[in-house]
C-alpha cells in the first residue's frame, strides 16, 4: 500500500508539474516534458502493478483469460482499464486517447458549442465509483452537490483548456503525443479488449485504474 500511495503521489505531482510547465517563461521545454512524462509512466506502471498484486489474492483470475497473467500483471490491469468504458455509461468504439485528444486541442469557441455536460457527467461517474478520487480531491468534494459540481467542472475545464496561443508553438503535437504515450501502453497490452471484457466483469476491482487513467489522461491532454 505504501508503494501504491507513493506512486500515486508522484503521479499527481507530475501532472501538476506538466500543467505548470505551460506557464513557464520561454515556453514548454521539450527535455523537461519528456522527463516528466517518463517519471509519470514509471509511477503509473508501479501503481498499477501494486494494485493488481494487492487484489490478486482476493479475486482469483479466470483460468481461460490469459495464458500467464502473473507474468504481466500491469498489462492485465491496463487491458481491463481499456475495456472498462465499454461496460460503463458510454460504449466507445475507440480507445479513450483518440476520444480525448481532439477535445483538448479545440479552440474555446468550439468548446462552447459542445454540451459541456457530457464530459462532466462522464467525469463525475468515473470518479464517484472509483477509489482514486484522491488524485483530484477538490473535484471529489464537489460531487456532493449537483450545482456545485457543474460550476467546479466548468472551472476545471476553463483551467485545463490550453489557451490557443500556447497549445501550439514549438510543440504542436506534444499534448497528443504525451497523452498517446500513456494510452500507447494500454494499446500494446497483450490481451485484446474482447478477451479482457469478461475479466473485467468478473473482477470489478479493475475499475479503479480506469478512473485514475482518465484523470491522468485529461491532465496530460490539458498540458
Amino acid at each position: 500500500m505504501e508503494v501504491q500511495k507513493e506512486a500515486q503521489r508522484i503521479m499527481t505531482l507530475s501532472v501538476w508539474k506538466m500543467y505548470h510547465s505551460r506557464m513557464q517563461r520561454g515556453g514548454l521545454r521539450l527535455h523537461r516534458s519528456l522527463q516528466l512524462s517518463l517519471v509519470m509512466r514509471s509511477a503509473r506502471e508501479l501503481y498499477l502493478s501494486a494494485k493488481v498484486e494487492a487484489q490478486e489474492p482476493e479475486v482469483p483470475l479466470p483460468p481461460a483469460r490469459s495464458p500467464d497473467p502473473y507474468l504481466h500483471p500491469p498489462r492485465e490491469a491496463e487491458a481491463a482499464a481499456e475495456a472498462a468504458p465499454s461496460d460503463g455509461e458510454q460504449p466507445s468504439p475507440e480507445p479513450m486517447d483518440t476520444q480525448e485528444a481532439p477535445r483538448a486541442e479545440e479552440t474555446p469557441a468550439r468548446c462552447a458549442q459542445r454540451p459541456a455536460k457530457v464530459s462532466r457527467k462522464r467525469r463525475s461517474c468515473s470518479l464517484s465509483d472509483g477509489g482514486d478520487a484522491a488524485l483530484v480531491p477538490s473535484k471529489k468534494a464537489r460531487l456532493e452537490e449537483e450545482e456545485e459540481e457543474e460550476r467546479a467542472s466548468s472551472d476545471v475545464l476553463d483551467r485545463l483548456q490550453p489557451p490557443p496561443a500556447q497549445a501550439e508553438g514549438a510543440f504542436p503535437n506534444l499534448a497528443r503525443v504525451l497523452q498517446r504515450r500513456f494510452s500507447g501502453l494500454l494499446n500494446c497490452s497483450p490481451a485484446a479488449p474482447p478477451t479482457a471484457t469478461p475479466a473485467c466483469e468478473a473482477k470489478p476491482a479493475c475499475r479503479p485504474p480506469d478512473n485514475m487513467l482518465n484523470v491522468l489522461v485529461r491532465a496530460v491532454v490539458a498540458f
Binding site: R25, G26, G27, A165, Q166, E168, G169, A170
Partner: peptide, 12 residues
C-alpha cells in the same frame, strides 16, 4: 516575442 508562435523568448 515570437508572434507567430505566441511565445516569449527569454534573454537568458
Amino acid at each position: 516575442f515570437d508572434y507567430l508562435k505566441s511565445l516569449e523568448i527569454e534573454e537568458k
